[in-house]
Design a protein around this nucleic acid. Sequence first.
DNA 1: GTTATCGATGATTTCGATTACATCGGAGCG
DNA 2: CGCTCCGATGTAATCGAAATCATCGATAAC
Lengths: 336, 336
Amino acid sequence: MATIQDVARDAGVSTATVSRVFSAPELVLETTRNKVMEAVNRLGYEPNFAAKSLRTLRTEKILVTVPDISNPFFSQVIRGVEEAALAAGYSVLLGDTRHEETREEQYAAMFRRKEADGLIFLGHRLPDVLAEMVAAKGPRTPIVNGCEFRPGLAVSSAHIDNDRAAAEVVDYLYGLGHTRVGVVTGPLVSPISSDRLSGVLAAAQRHGRASALRMAIGDFSIESGVRQTGELLDEPGRPTAIFCFSDEMAMGALEAIRLRGLRCPEDVSLVGFDDIRFAQYLHPKLTTVSQPKEQIGHEVVRLLMDILSGRATALQNVTLPHQLVIRSSTAPPPSS
Amino acid sequence: MATIQDVARDAGVSTATVSRVFSAPELVLETTRNKVMEAVNRLGYEPNFAAKSLRTLRTEKILVTVPDISNPFFSQVIRGVEEAALAAGYSVLLGDTRHEETREEQYAAMFRRKEADGLIFLGHRLPDVLAEMVAAKGPRTPIVNGCEFRPGLAVSSAHIDNDRAAAEVVDYLYGLGHTRVGVVTGPLVSPISSDRLSGVLAAAQRHGRASALRMAIGDFSIESGVRQTGELLDEPGRPTAIFCFSDEMAMGALEAIRLRGLRCPEDVSLVGFDDIRFAQYLHPKLTTVSQPKEQIGHEVVRLLMDILSGRATALQNVTLPHQLVIRSSTAPPPSS
DNA sequence: GTTATCGATGATTTCGATTACATCGGAGCG
DNA sequence: CGCTCCGATGTAATCGAAATCATCGATAAC
């Protein structure tokens, strides 16, 4: 592959001029510019990326780590990230951490090696090396979080109001007349789960129904939805409504409901969370909390760009709007 | 961030020695190595990636372009790619082309700029600049295709036998007693669709049922599944079985079937393709062709590594095993 | 005892671009 | 007419690590 020297020689100019043709074309005379471009085309020259990167100390890449890309919720967020990144002239390095800390650390090391200008993490953990960076550099550290919000991490983030969204779901269920509600949460170490849970608890208390609340801890997977919902349904005083903290778990819940010969929503109402693409094609169509997935991706990139361009000085926490989408998996409880 | 010079100075050795500690530790005396490592830890040194990359002309990255990451089939394949790449010491640059040629070309340019050592594309098109590279360098060009197989492209690839898999589905349906079968294909420009279609046609002819075959062209999306299946169901002489070339379209088909007050499988049998994670949790559980998604990802990385390491000399086309998974969306046709 | 050999390490060039600084010719001005 | 300024371009330092070649002391071989 031709280098900038080859082009310079071929065009009869200096390498500086060739470089300027690419990075600041207005500084070079049109006739010279054409000469250079001819040489470029003749030789099929493309600037070598590593060289450019070494000199400028920029990679034009952002590293995005995600707990599980095969999860449609995350893949939609990533889609938004990719779109916004490309528009801003960045490309996306993908890290699927599979919820494993060692993988998170591998990607953290990549970031420290400067293989990317910025890091967006969609999980809830920040490896120690990165926490140190944040502690040292403050809010100018190009690390941003998406979906979760943990104040202690001291990084900017974009997310919905999980607490309020979950409370709305419970309010809605009580409003339908349900009294015994079962909740299938995700792992409580993640704020995404604990925030939603506190919303649920607050709403239950407000309605004086806290004692009738049943809870099971899942891991956001379909299988855990089947299992945990099953346990809730098998307890005496079966809940008439189940609220799962992800649509995937709700899919599992649907299965658990059917396995017991129950009908949704006639016997058991069901609410999910995320509004993944498939939610509206389940049977019954799933009532769920819609998160603005692509928008979260866009926003998180915007936050990162603010930091990279030096515009940002303080932490920003962007709360994006969610929406309770009522479909056909919820109904009043069966009249006993 | 500390550089190799800083470490060398701090440890009282030359930069060459520091470099060797990382790339060929066996060449340096243990005592010296320890001295260096102490300095490394003291200064928090991490080798600068761009510098390394410039010198070695390697990026240790592979670019993966995919028509749509939010598609669970592709995201599973990518998962396999990511896993195999990481194991081989590579990281993944993600390009979501959204089926758009301009985006494919943007990523092709990235590859030419040497932002990645290899390219894996999961679509069916190869931008011109890359086709030229392949023409010039032959089978040593580090470009590999996954999922599709178009002989004209002259790149190695890993995929299932789409033709045969589709024929098996049709054989199975005829075996159940169906005579009127409707097929919802993807866009016929992609081999993934045209291969499956020729399998379908061959099987139908073999059974002498070609004239009773009905066909509609979808685009792999749920919505097109609803629409195209709807059209097939509304024609006179309604098919008693529908075969969609993707599970997403089959989800749409299920919706179309329900909208018309029909039952699956009692009135209409349904078969999908891909066996995405959700297929077995639909209601009814979807009969479908299972593709070894993560394995395709692994295999495609292996093919690429063979090329990058100089082991590969000729094109390889790996056909991986598929499997018809029979669940509850298929049954004999209603007795008329 | 002299020389080839080898293991450990250092000095220096190199990768390919960007960019600060230098140069130079011509326009503008007093 | 001489000076300044400016636009266009060239020269050369620089980014940080890798790798080639050189060096040096010690051991082995003859």
